[in-house]
Structures are given as structure tokens and as C-alpha cells.
Design a protein around this nucleic acid. Structure first.
Lengths: 249, 249
DNA sequence: CGCCACGTTGACAGTCCTCAACATGGGTGG
DNA sequence: CCACCCATGTTGAGGACTGTCAACGTGGCG
């Protein structure tokens, strides 16, 4: 129950970098668009001012009109259930697109919360749809993104079905490592953007269990944990936890 | 580990009903296409012979080329993990489309297994993509389908995170009831197409736990269970299990 | 300085997994 | 036609895991 003072985001045309200059162009939407079409995509990108930590990018039930590409920072998406509980449905880092799971809806299916100061590029869905008809490869990529989202959810589902609390935590850590690697950040040392409680909510665990998992990994010499600062000392241990077969074969 | 004798499906043009006459046209792909465009959609539908129980519609790793609309029967999709385990990723009933989560891939991301004798309409992905460019509402509907798939996975994720084995089983039962209702089958009496083991795999439970849940529901007078034959005596009990708030409000 | 949010640690209880035995039912081969 | 086998489902006992409750430590902020 974070006290989320909601401030509707005022997005105006900024004078920040364009897609062609963007450090993320190889992993973001531009990566699937031909060079000559990039200006068209760039034209519909709306670059806004940063969203401060704790603010919302959009919230569940609000009319759906835009999807967002994350440029920097970290977002969590939550879904409020009919019984009032909040379920975290995903964490998103730079280069990722959020809001696409609402495309079938007239309203956003979940709420996007900035875990850190975050900058995004907003894209009107109607414009994106229109451009998708003009640029087939963009349309394809939207399908790719969505099917990727489906498979991502299935991975989480598997991780949770596989039970063991420590496996789930290991999986989250590896996913984060992978994301940080893509963003060219340090691969073995990073700062968790989310709280233990968030992790527990996401993984279907009590926050104490998450805490104990970190402590245990530390005792094993796999991690060095200092609150949200994490150093991964033995990454292989984490991958072996999840896919023990790789050690056998 | 079902002995799945794999027989590549030979799909030819059948002389079965066309979309316009199909009992499922209100819930299947045709529901989102204008009447005058229906014949175009109908033209790319490939109606094959039935798939016998235990056979595969497609299997993981096979080149992705078609998606399928289920006309009758029941399909489960499984993903084989690198450690050899099988994870069930979904159950599909008539009117549902399968294979769309592979759209971003060059190969099928999972395996589709017929739990009963099943008939499907196959659709070449390339044709569907082409037709989607001609019929915007079809393109939209494809997006709708995929975002629906994402949200479906998130629902399951929530159900599993909410823990309690009995809640998970209740949720599956309600989902099946809903599907059977859409197909205009009996709403309180049905035959489970899948085994206890499948249910456990899907819900992240041991098969014994699933069996115990059924037994408990029967002792409470909520269900009448006879192997795979289920009669729901107290549906409200099941919904209250999942969303207790509805009883309070 | 005190308050509050967040994280850690311990004790205990409940849920669910594991192992095992047993029941049932369909299919096969004699 | 029957015996047998195998797949599937049920039930019981024991133990591991993890949720709950509670106390405590720490750091940021007014």
C-alpha cells in the first residue's frame, strides 16, 4: 500500500535525443524499423519530463491511449484485484515497452508505478497502429513484443510452479542481471530497485521468505547483500538452481 | 510422460461447414470481421481431419507456420524445459485460438496435445498477416487475442500466488465452467478432459493434493466427483473461495 | 531526537510434498 | 472369458518448506 500521490503526467514535446541518437535504439522499437522509416517512428515519439520515484505513469481503469518505451529508470506494474489486494504483474527496465498488454482494452489493465526516477517515450496507440499499417516490420514487431510478453509470463509461471522459494528468487536475480547486461550496466553488481515486499508479492512469497533467501545465498557465498545493493559472486550457482540438468549433462 | 506417438498432421481441404455456418462464429475469429469480409477469412481457413486423442497438433521447435482455431475437442499445450520436465502452459477449448504465442518466433514455443479427439481450422500465419493488413478489424482482433492471452496468464499467475491449493483448483473449475457455458454445454455437469496429474502440473501442485481437493469439495457438498465426471452442486462456494470480498460487500 | 519505512531474525504452526499402499478400470493376451 | 498389467485415482503418515506473528536493528527525514 504505497502512498501513491497520483499526478497525471503532462507530456509535452521535449528537446531530448531523437531515436537515431538514442543509446537504446538497438534494443528498443527502432531496432525493428528500417533506417529510412526511423524518422516516421521518431515523429510519433512523445518525450516527456521525468516521472519522479513513487509517481504513476498510468493507472488501472484510465482510458488506454498510449504505450511507453522506458528510457531510464524502473517501472513496476500492479493490478488491483476486486478484493483490494495489489498484485505486481511485472518489472520493466530501459528498452522495454509497457502498456502493450492493454492494447485489447479500452482502459489500462494495470497501474505503472515508478520505482525510481524514470524517463519514457510515449507513443499514441492510434498513431502506432496507423504506422504499423504503413511499416509492416513495425506491425510484426508489435506482435513479437506481445508474444514475448506471453512467453515471459509463462516463464514466471513455471518458476513459481517449480516451487522452492530460493529458485524463484534466483530466477528473478538472473532476469535482472540479464536486463542490466542488455543496458550495458555492471553485470555482477547492482542495486535492486524494488523492496523485499515487492519481490515477495511478485514471486508469490512472504517478504520474510525473500529476506531469508538473500541471507542464505549470502551465507553460501553466492551473493553479497547490503540492503538493496547486491553483488553476485557465484552466478553459476543461481543458474544451476533453476536448471539442474545443465550441471549433469 | 504420455506415450505420444507423433504423427504429423496432414491437413487437406475438407468439405465441412464454412465460417458462415459455424456454430462458433460468434466466439471465434469471425466474430470480429464484417459480414462482407467473412468470405475472405473463410477462404484461408484450412479444415483438416480430426486429431485423435493423444496426438499432437504441433510440437515445440517445429517451424512455426500456422495458428489453429479449435472447433471441437480439447487441447493442452506444454513446454519442455531444458531439464526435460514438461510444464503445461494452457488448456484450450472450442472457439479458442492456439499458436498465437509463437507468432514472434520462427518455431513453435510449445507443444499442442489433443486430450480428446479434436477438430481444428488451420490458418497460415503468412495469409493471416496479409489479411490483417487488408482488414484492420482483423488485425485489431489479433492484438486483442494476444493481449487477452497475456491477461489470462496473469490471472493464472495471481491464482497461484494466492497460494491455497483449493483456491487454485476452484479457479480452474470455474474457468472450465465458463468455457463450457460459452460453448453452450451443460453448466454444472461436465467431464474433465485432463488427468489429475495434468491439473497438478498446470496449477503447480502435487497430483495427490489435487485429488484431496476434489475429495474435500465432495465432502463439503460442493462437488460430486466420479473420476473425471464432475457435477457442481455449489458454484457460489467456489467463487467465494477465490474472491472472498464479494461475500463481504 | 523520535518517528516511520524497510529489512532481518527467531519461534511456531499449517500447508503441501513425498513416499507408499491400495482401489479401480480399460486393454491385452492367453 | 478370464487373468494380468498398466495407467489413473484415492488415501494415509511423516516431514520439509514457508507463512504468520513478533521482536529487533537500521537509515532517512521531519
Amino acid at each position: 500500500m504505497e502512498a501513491t500521490l497520483y499526478q497525471p503526467l503532462k507530456i509535452g514535446v521535449g528537446r531530448e535525443t531523437h531515436c537515431i541518437d538514442c543509446a537504446l535504439k538497438l534494443i528498443c522499437l527502432p531496432s525493428f524499423v528500417k533506417a529510412k522509416e526511423l524518422s516516421q517512428l521518431d515523429a510519433i515519439m512523445i518525450r516527456g519530463r521525468p516521472i519522479q520515484r513513487g509517481n504513476l505513469l498510468f493507472h488501472q481503469g484510465q482510458p488506454f491511449d498510449q504505450v511507453f518505451a522506458i528510457r531510464s529508470g524502473f517501472i513496476k506494474t500492479t493490478e488491483t484485484l476486486s478484493n483490494g489486494e495489489e498484485q505486481i504483474t511485472g518489472f520493466y527496465s530501459p528498452g522495454e515497452i509497457i502498456g502493450i498488454d492493454s492494447i485489447g482494452n479500452s482502459t489500462y489493465a494495470n497501474t505503472a508505478f515508478a520505482l525510481e526516477k524514470t524517463t519514457v517515450c510515449a507513443i499514441d496507440h492510434s498513431e502506432l497502429k496507423f504506422l504499423g499499417q504503413l511499416i509492416p516490420s513495425l506491425n510484426d514487431h508489435l506482435f513479437n513484443l506481445m508474444s514475448g510478453e506471453i512467453r515471459k509470463n509463462q516463464r514466471i509461471l513455471r518458476a513459481i510452479s517449480q516451487h522452492s522459494a530460493e529458485k524463484r528468487v534466483a530466477m528473478l536475480l538472473l532476469t535482472l542481471l540479464e536486463r542490466y547486461k542488455i543496458c550495458h550496466l555492471s553485470e555482477d553488481k547492482f542495486r535492486l530497485p524494488m523492496s523485499r515486499c515487492d519481490i515477495g508479492n511478485y514471486l508469490g512469497l512472504a517478504l520474510e521468505t525473500v529476506s531469508r533467501a538473500f541471507t542464505h545465498f549470502q551465507k553460501l557465498g553466492v551473493l553479497e547483500v547490503n540492503n538493496k545493493e547486491i553483488i553476485v559472486l557465484n552466478r553459476a550457482y543461481l543458474s544451476d538452481l533453476i536448471e539442474p540438468s545443465k550441471r549433469v549433462l
